[in-house]
Design a protein around this nucleic acid. Structure first.
Length: 257
DNA sequence: GTCCATGTTCTTTA
DNA sequence: CTAAAGAACATGGA
Protein backbone atom coordinates (compact mmCIF):
# COMPACT_ATOMS: atom_id res chain seq x y z
CA UNK A 1 0.00 0.00 0.00
CA UNK A 2 1.37 3.39 -0.83
CA UNK A 3 0.55 6.11 1.60
CA UNK A 4 -0.53 9.14 -0.37
CA UNK A 5 -2.43 10.83 2.42
CA UNK A 6 -1.60 14.27 1.09
CA UNK A 7 -3.29 13.59 -2.25
CA UNK A 8 -6.32 11.77 -0.92
CA UNK A 9 -8.60 14.78 -1.11
CA UNK A 10 -7.85 15.09 -4.82
CA UNK A 11 -8.64 11.42 -5.35
CA UNK A 12 -11.98 11.34 -3.57
CA UNK A 13 -13.34 14.76 -4.60
CA UNK A 14 -16.83 14.59 -6.06
CA UNK A 15 -17.10 10.81 -6.02
CA UNK A 16 -19.88 8.68 -4.67
CA UNK A 17 -19.29 6.01 -2.04
CA UNK A 18 -20.03 2.58 -3.50
CA UNK A 19 -19.30 0.37 -0.50
CA UNK A 20 -17.96 0.29 3.02
CA UNK A 21 -16.18 -2.87 4.14
CA UNK A 22 -13.67 -4.14 6.61
CA UNK A 23 -10.77 -6.50 5.99
CA UNK A 24 -8.74 -7.39 9.04
CA UNK A 25 -8.18 -4.08 10.78
CA UNK A 26 -8.49 -2.06 7.60
CA UNK A 27 -11.59 -0.02 6.80
CA UNK A 28 -12.26 0.00 3.07
CA UNK A 29 -14.41 2.71 1.53
CA UNK A 30 -15.00 1.86 -2.11
CA UNK A 31 -15.64 4.78 -4.46
CA UNK A 32 -17.31 4.92 -7.85
CA UNK A 33 -16.28 3.92 -10.40
CA UNK A 34 -13.15 2.36 -8.88
CA UNK A 35 -10.59 2.81 -6.17
CA UNK A 36 -10.66 2.37 -2.43
CA UNK A 37 -10.00 4.69 0.45
CA UNK A 38 -8.25 2.47 3.00
CA UNK A 39 -8.04 3.51 6.63
CA UNK A 40 -6.17 1.84 9.47
CA UNK A 41 -6.88 3.32 12.89
CA UNK A 42 -3.65 2.12 14.47
CA UNK A 43 -3.84 2.56 18.23
CA UNK A 44 -5.45 5.97 18.61
CA UNK A 45 -7.14 6.62 15.28
CA UNK A 46 -10.73 7.83 15.12
CA UNK A 47 -12.96 8.05 12.09
CA UNK A 48 -15.97 10.29 12.68
CA UNK A 49 -18.73 12.02 10.81
CA UNK A 50 -19.26 15.46 12.30
CA UNK A 51 -21.02 18.64 11.41
CA UNK A 52 -18.92 20.90 9.24
CA UNK A 53 -19.45 23.53 11.92
CA UNK A 54 -17.96 21.39 14.68
CA UNK A 55 -14.56 22.60 15.81
CA UNK A 56 -11.73 20.54 14.40
CA UNK A 57 -9.98 18.67 17.18
CA UNK A 58 -6.21 18.57 17.42
CA UNK A 59 -4.47 15.85 15.37
CA UNK A 60 -7.12 15.80 12.69
CA UNK A 61 -5.09 14.70 9.67
CA UNK A 62 -7.77 14.19 7.09
CA UNK A 63 -11.14 15.78 6.48
CA UNK A 64 -13.54 15.48 3.58
CA UNK A 65 -16.96 17.03 2.98
CA UNK A 66 -19.85 14.62 2.57
CA UNK A 67 -23.60 15.26 2.31
CA UNK A 68 -25.67 17.46 4.63
CA UNK A 69 -22.86 19.77 5.70
CA UNK A 70 -21.17 16.85 7.35
CA UNK A 71 -17.52 15.96 7.28
CA UNK A 72 -15.74 12.63 7.46
CA UNK A 73 -12.77 13.22 9.74
CA UNK A 74 -9.73 11.14 10.58
CA UNK A 75 -7.99 12.03 13.82
CA UNK A 76 -4.98 10.19 15.22
CA UNK A 77 -2.79 11.69 17.94
CA UNK A 78 -0.10 9.03 17.82
CA UNK A 79 -0.16 8.72 14.04
CA UNK A 80 0.29 4.95 14.06
CA UNK A 81 -2.71 4.73 11.78
CA UNK A 82 -2.88 5.85 8.20
CA UNK A 83 -4.85 6.45 5.06
CA UNK A 84 -4.04 4.91 1.70
CA UNK A 85 -5.46 4.96 -1.77
CA UNK A 86 -5.85 1.48 -3.26
CA UNK A 87 -6.58 0.65 -6.86
CA UNK A 88 -8.47 -2.54 -6.06
CA UNK A 89 -9.45 -4.96 -3.30
CA UNK A 90 -6.58 -7.27 -4.09
CA UNK A 91 -4.27 -4.60 -2.75
CA UNK A 92 -6.05 -4.70 0.61
CA UNK A 93 -5.40 -8.43 0.84
CA UNK A 94 -1.65 -8.24 0.94
CA UNK A 95 -0.15 -9.47 4.17
CA UNK A 96 -3.46 -10.58 5.66
CA UNK A 97 -4.49 -14.06 6.72
CA UNK A 98 -8.10 -15.29 6.84
CA UNK A 99 -10.88 -13.42 8.62
CA UNK A 100 -11.22 -14.39 12.29
CA UNK A 101 -15.04 -14.45 12.22
CA UNK A 102 -15.29 -16.92 9.36
CA UNK A 103 -12.17 -19.07 9.51
CA UNK A 104 -12.94 -22.74 10.01
CA UNK A 105 -11.29 -24.75 12.75
CA UNK A 106 -9.60 -27.09 10.32
CA UNK A 107 -7.86 -24.22 8.59
CA UNK A 108 -6.94 -22.58 11.89
CA UNK A 109 -5.43 -25.88 13.02
CA UNK A 110 -3.39 -26.19 9.82
CA UNK A 111 -2.05 -22.64 10.10
CA UNK A 112 -1.13 -23.08 13.76
CA UNK A 113 0.51 -26.44 13.17
CA UNK A 114 3.04 -24.79 10.89
CA UNK A 115 4.61 -22.53 13.48
CA UNK A 116 6.42 -23.17 16.70
CA UNK A 117 5.80 -19.70 18.06
CA UNK A 118 3.85 -18.98 21.22
CA UNK A 119 0.14 -19.05 20.44
CA UNK A 120 -0.19 -15.43 21.55
CA UNK A 121 2.42 -14.38 18.99
CA UNK A 122 0.66 -16.40 16.30
CA UNK A 123 -2.70 -14.79 17.03
CA UNK A 124 -1.20 -11.31 16.73
CA UNK A 125 0.38 -12.18 13.37
CA UNK A 126 -1.95 -10.53 10.86
CA UNK A 127 -0.51 -12.68 8.09
CA UNK A 128 -1.58 -15.83 9.91
CA UNK A 129 -5.02 -14.65 10.98
CA UNK A 130 -6.24 -11.10 10.39
CA UNK A 131 -8.00 -8.78 12.78
CA UNK A 132 -7.02 -9.86 16.27
CA UNK A 133 -5.30 -7.30 18.46
CA UNK A 134 -3.69 -7.50 21.85
CA UNK A 135 -6.87 -7.25 23.92
CA UNK A 136 -8.86 -9.82 21.99
CA UNK A 137 -5.94 -12.24 21.74
CA UNK A 138 -5.69 -12.29 25.53
CA UNK A 139 -9.44 -12.53 26.03
CA UNK A 140 -9.79 -15.33 23.48
CA UNK A 141 -6.95 -17.35 25.03
CA UNK A 142 -8.54 -17.00 28.46
CA UNK A 143 -11.91 -18.10 27.11
CA UNK A 144 -10.24 -21.07 25.41
CA UNK A 145 -8.20 -21.84 28.55
CA UNK A 146 -4.94 -21.83 26.64
CA UNK A 147 -1.68 -20.46 28.07
CA UNK A 148 -0.36 -17.60 25.92
CA UNK A 149 3.08 -19.23 25.76
CA UNK A 150 1.79 -22.59 24.57
CA UNK A 151 3.59 -23.45 21.33
CA UNK A 152 1.10 -23.05 18.49
CA UNK A 153 2.06 -26.30 16.79
CA UNK A 154 1.53 -28.28 19.99
CA UNK A 155 -2.13 -27.38 20.49
CA UNK A 156 -4.47 -30.33 20.49
CA UNK A 157 -7.54 -30.64 18.31
CA UNK A 158 -9.59 -29.78 21.36
CA UNK A 159 -7.49 -26.68 22.06
CA UNK A 160 -7.95 -25.41 18.52
CA UNK A 161 -11.66 -26.08 18.58
CA UNK A 162 -12.01 -24.10 21.80
CA UNK A 163 -9.80 -21.33 20.45
CA UNK A 164 -11.78 -21.08 17.23
CA UNK A 165 -15.00 -20.71 19.16
CA UNK A 166 -13.48 -18.30 21.67
CA UNK A 167 -12.15 -15.99 18.95
CA UNK A 168 -15.56 -15.70 17.34
CA UNK A 169 -17.40 -15.36 20.61
CA UNK A 170 -15.08 -12.66 21.96
CA UNK A 171 -15.12 -10.64 18.75
CA UNK A 172 -18.89 -10.82 18.38
CA UNK A 173 -19.35 -9.84 21.99
CA UNK A 174 -16.93 -6.93 21.60
CA UNK A 175 -18.68 -5.73 18.45
CA UNK A 176 -22.04 -5.97 20.19
CA UNK A 177 -20.66 -3.79 22.96
CA UNK A 178 -19.05 -1.38 20.50
CA UNK A 179 -15.47 -2.22 21.26
CA UNK A 180 -13.00 -1.90 24.08
CA UNK A 181 -12.01 1.73 23.82
CA UNK A 182 -10.06 2.53 26.91
CA UNK A 183 -9.61 6.25 26.65
CA UNK A 184 -8.77 7.36 23.15
CA UNK A 185 -11.82 6.49 21.18
CA UNK A 186 -15.27 7.97 21.46
CA UNK A 187 -17.84 6.95 18.90
CA UNK A 188 -20.22 9.16 16.93
CA UNK A 189 -22.68 9.27 19.82
CA UNK A 190 -20.05 10.29 22.30
CA UNK A 191 -19.94 6.78 23.76
CA UNK A 192 -16.79 4.82 24.37
CA UNK A 193 -16.85 1.08 23.82
CA UNK A 194 -18.33 -0.93 26.66
CA UNK A 195 -16.47 -4.18 26.10
CA UNK A 196 -13.73 -2.95 28.45
CA UNK A 197 -16.18 -3.58 31.27
CA UNK A 198 -16.32 -7.20 30.19
CA UNK A 199 -12.58 -7.81 30.00
CA UNK A 200 -11.78 -10.95 31.94
CA UNK A 201 -8.00 -10.67 31.90
CA UNK A 202 -6.79 -7.69 29.89
CA UNK A 203 -5.55 -4.91 32.17
CA UNK A 204 -6.43 -6.94 35.28
CA UNK A 205 -3.02 -8.02 36.52
CA UNK A 206 -3.15 -9.05 40.18
CA UNK A 207 -6.93 -9.08 40.28
CA UNK A 208 -8.70 -12.36 41.01
CA UNK A 209 -9.61 -14.55 38.06
CA UNK A 210 -13.37 -14.31 37.50
CA UNK A 211 -13.43 -18.09 37.20
CA UNK A 212 -11.19 -19.38 40.00
CA UNK A 213 -10.03 -16.40 42.04
CA UNK A 214 -6.34 -16.93 41.38
CA UNK A 215 -4.49 -13.61 40.90
CA UNK A 216 -4.10 -12.88 37.19
CA UNK A 217 -0.60 -12.58 35.81
CA UNK A 218 0.96 -10.23 33.30
CA UNK A 219 3.92 -11.22 31.17
CA UNK A 220 5.43 -9.84 27.97
CA UNK A 221 5.11 -11.89 24.81
CA UNK A 222 6.54 -10.58 21.55
CA UNK A 223 6.79 -7.17 23.09
CA UNK A 224 3.15 -6.98 24.10
CA UNK A 225 1.55 -6.98 27.51
CA UNK A 226 -0.08 -10.38 28.00
CA UNK A 227 -2.61 -11.22 30.69
CA UNK A 228 -3.73 -14.67 31.79
CA UNK A 229 -4.84 -16.87 34.65
CA UNK A 230 -2.06 -19.28 35.60
CA UNK A 231 -4.58 -21.76 36.93
CA UNK A 232 -7.25 -21.70 34.23
CA UNK A 233 -4.69 -21.49 31.43
CA UNK A 234 -2.10 -24.10 32.37
CA UNK A 235 1.01 -24.53 30.30
CA UNK A 236 1.56 -28.19 29.59
CA UNK A 237 4.79 -28.26 27.77
CA UNK A 238 5.29 -31.75 26.39
CA UNK A 239 8.56 -33.15 27.62
CA UNK A 240 11.22 -32.25 25.12
CA UNK A 241 12.36 -35.29 23.22
CA UNK A 242 16.06 -35.72 23.54
CA UNK A 243 17.63 -35.95 20.15
CA UNK A 244 21.22 -35.45 21.16
CA UNK A 245 22.87 -35.29 24.48
CA UNK A 246 23.65 -31.70 25.34
CA UNK A 247 27.30 -31.31 24.56
CA UNK A 248 29.48 -30.48 27.48
CA UNK A 249 30.13 -26.76 27.12
CA UNK A 250 33.02 -26.45 29.47
CA UNK A 251 34.38 -29.23 31.62
CA UNK A 252 33.81 -28.60 35.32
CA UNK A 253 36.60 -26.34 36.27
CA UNK A 254 38.13 -28.17 39.12
CA UNK A 255 41.17 -26.11 39.47
CA UNK A 256 44.04 -28.47 40.21
CA UNK A 257 46.04 -25.61 41.68
C1' DG B 1 10.20 13.18 35.87
C1' DT B 2 8.45 7.81 35.18
C1' DC B 3 5.90 4.04 32.97
C1' DC B 4 2.47 2.43 30.02
C1' DA B 5 -0.65 2.24 25.98
C1' DT B 6 -6.03 -1.13 21.28
C1' DG B 7 -0.27 -1.42 16.01
C1' DT B 8 3.05 -2.13 12.42
C1' DT B 9 7.60 -2.34 10.50
C1' DC B 10 12.35 -2.55 10.49
C1' DT B 11 16.83 -4.15 12.31
C1' DT B 12 19.54 -7.11 14.94
C1' DT B 13 20.53 -11.40 17.00
C1' DA B 14 20.45 -16.32 17.62
C1' DC C 1 14.48 -20.10 6.70
C1' DT C 2 12.38 -19.27 11.68
C1' DA C 3 11.89 -16.54 15.60
C1' DA C 4 12.51 -13.51 19.17
C1' DA C 5 13.84 -9.18 20.97
C1' DG C 6 14.34 -4.38 20.63
C1' DA C 7 13.70 -0.07 18.66
C1' DA C 8 11.24 3.17 16.17
C1' DC C 9 7.21 5.95 15.13
C1' DA C 10 4.25 10.30 18.38
C1' DT C 11 1.27 11.59 21.96
C1' DG C 12 -1.23 11.55 26.19
C1' DG C 13 -2.80 9.72 30.66
C1' DA C 14 -1.90 7.95 35.29
Amino acid sequence: MRNICRDISQQVAGRRVASVKRRGKKILIGLEPAGILCIHLGMTGQLTVESADAPTKPHTHFLVEVDDRKQLRFRDPRRFGGIWWLDDEKEAESGLGPEPLTIRPQRLARLLSRTRRAIKAALLDQALIAGLGNIYADEALFRARIHPLAPAHALTVDHVRRLNRAIKLILRQAIRHRGSSISDYIDVNGQSGRFQNLHQVYGREGKPCTNCGTPLQRIVVCGRSTHFCPRCQPLHRPAARIIRRPRAESPPATDPG
